[in-house]
């Protein structure tokens, strides 16, 4: 399937915060209450549309445990966007955000767009991290912030798409040298220069594993 741009994403955060479930909700529009834990890295992809341009998101979902961290690190390079996820019902996952961020800053390219996501916001009765705290952390570290729920799909589309919109804006602003793929951006055939023409539609979906 042709695209104007391909953006590479990485999803990071503590184990069990719902990274794989967010991805599954985004690519397949379904929720799996008991999801196998991720070993190493896994993969998902979906087409979206921004500014009438088809954009392919290629998303690497990573394992959360420290033991897999060095594998995860090799995926920071070459990612244009990152979703940093914590679980609003488990305080420690929020407390570890600074470590994740440090890791990302150290191993990713400087212009990587990072979205902070407080997942499981459907479980507000078990909330252990307030929305304000999430906002505060995001503000301090210059991140975009949303609370989301992989279960109800609340804000899932928005999180992935607004990250893409930010990246797209950076391209328009000339922040990236898009010919350099190490930024996690690839120019497709239908892309530059000018509008791609034929393709349109809102967030057209191409299934979990489109190529």
């Amino acid at each position: 399937m042709s695209y104007a741009y391909l953006f590479k994403y990485i999803i990071i955060g503590d184990t069990g915060v719902g990274k794989s479930c967010l991805l599954l909700q985004f690519t397949d529009k379904r929720f799996q209450p008991v999801h196998d834990l991720t070993i190493g890295v896994e993969f998902g992809a979906r087409m979206i549309t921004i500014d009438n341009k088809p954009i392919k998101l290629q998303i690497w979902d990573t394992a959360g445990q420290e033991s897999f961290r060095s594998i995860t690190r090799s995926y920071y390079r070459g990612a244009a966007g990152a979703l940093l996820v914590y679980d609003i019902t488990r305080r420690e996952t929020f407390n570890h955000l600074a470590n994740w961020l440090e890791d990302a800053r150290q191993h990713a390219n400087a212009n990587m767009t990072i979205m902070l996501i407080g997942n499981k916001c459907d479980l507000s009765h078990r909330r252990a991290v307030s929305t304000e705290e999430g906002e505060q952390f995001a503000k301090e570290h210059g991140l975009v912030f949303m609370e989301a729920s992989a279960k109800t799909a609340q804000n899932v589309e928005e999180a992935f798409i607004s990250t893409a919109a930010t990246i797209y804006k950076k391209i328009q602003d000339g922040v990236f040298d898009v010919s350099n793929e190490s930024y996690g951006i690839k120019v497709g055939y239908g892309g530059i220069p000018g509008p791609s023409g034929g393709r349109d539609g809102t967030s057209s979906q191409a299934g979990g594993c489109c190529s």
């Binding site: 184990t15 834990l37 470590n99």
Partner: peptide, 20 residues
């Protein structure tokens, strides 16, 4: 670059993983 995980962390992660 590696932070050691302690037994308390393992206790926690084991329980998270067991239920899935």
């Amino acid at each position: 670059s590696r932070t050691a995980e302690d037994y308390a962390t393992w206790q926690r992660i084991i329980r998270l993983d067991a239920i899935r």
